[in-house]
Design a protein around this nucleic acid. Structure first.
Length: 271
DNA sequence: CAGATCCCCTGGTCGC
DNA sequence: TGCGACCAGGGGATCT
């Protein structure tokens, strides 16, 4: 599923198509995804020019010269198709540009979202208002985690998935980062020694940077905007590798399910 | 507030 | 081959 690296890869791909482009057609093909699509989206975006693209946490952003920002979330199964020949049942938004390019936001499971927000009011956009720091920013450091973890009894895995603590991590990269850092996912946040937070922060930054470098992971239904599959999944140490050898010690990777979600870890390397 | 649980949604996979 | 059961899981809502 798209996490931060996949969204970053998607935005970079979209940028090559949309930066500076005039939008000649912006067509929602259903009224809602996870929540309602703004009914005036078509009217507000048609004829506008794209002035920039960006990313915040797992959200992609497309700015227009009308002072609006289209904010998209890819949910579980969302991806942008670039220059598709046909528009299918799961293509929920179609965009065409004056220079003849076409994009389709495809999301079979419809866990994604589309919002149109005044660019100047983005900070107050409800889904953004409570987000923690970007994990690749310098402000995300051991001191930040120390404060966020203090007195918390929730498992470190749950805390790292909490977008208020750090914004953009999902199940895959949390599992990977905890393995790299050698921390058991069930450890209560408040019981992690301060000296272990620097390696944890480094692990998070490293695994995200590697994934972006590789063009984003793929999990069955993820594809880069240009249709090529990302390939960071080949580098997964523990995620999806139950029963296979831990790359560090050779013991079988274990899996447990907590609140319906799989956690992959090595019981020897992570304590 | 912190934490736990449930729900949304559909394609792919698995067992019979 | 067909079919039902089950699973993936981010984020928001709703409880205790």
């Amino acid at each position: 599923m798209p996490e931060l690296p996949e969204v970053e890869t998607t935005v970079r791909g979209l940028r090559s198509v949309l930066e500076g482009a005039e939008l000649t057609r912006v067509e929602p093909r259903r009224p809602d995804l996870r929540r309602a699509i703004p009914p005036d989206l078509r009217q507000r975006m048609t004829g506008a020019r794209v002035t920039g693209l960006g990313r915040r946490a797992k959200y992609g952003m497309i700015d227009t010269d009308r002072g609006d920002t289209l904010v998209f979330h890819l949910g579980m199964s969302g991806r942008w198709r670039v220059d598709p020949e046909d528009i299918g049942t799961h293509d929920h938004l179609v965009i065409e540009t004056a220079d003849g390019r076409r994009l389709a936001l495809n999301d079979p499971r419809r866990f994604g979202s589309l919002d149109l927000v005044e660019t100047s009011a983005l900070a107050g956009f409800a889904p953004f208002a409570t987000l923690g720091p970007e994990p690749l920013d310098d402000v995300f450091d051991a001191a930040h985690l120390a404060e966020a973890f203090a007195d918390r009894i929730a498992p470190v895995k749950a805390l790292l998935l909490d977008q208020r603590v750090v914004a953009g991590l999902g199940n895959i990269y949390v599992c990977e980062a905890l393995h790299i850092a050698g921390i058991a996912p069930t450890t209560a946040g408040g019981r992690i020694a301060r000296k272990r937070l620097d390696p944890l922060v480094a692990a998070i930054k490293a695994v995200l940077a590697s994934a972006i470098e590789a063009g984003g992971s793929t999990l069955r239904d993820y594809a880069r905007p240009d249709g090529e599959l990302g390939y960071f999944f080949k580098q997964w140490r523990v995620y999806g590798r139950e029963g296979l050898d831990c790359p560090s010690c050779g013991k079988p990777v274990e899996r447990c399910v907590d609140s319906g979600r799989s956690t992959f870890f090595c019981a020897k390397c992570q304590r």
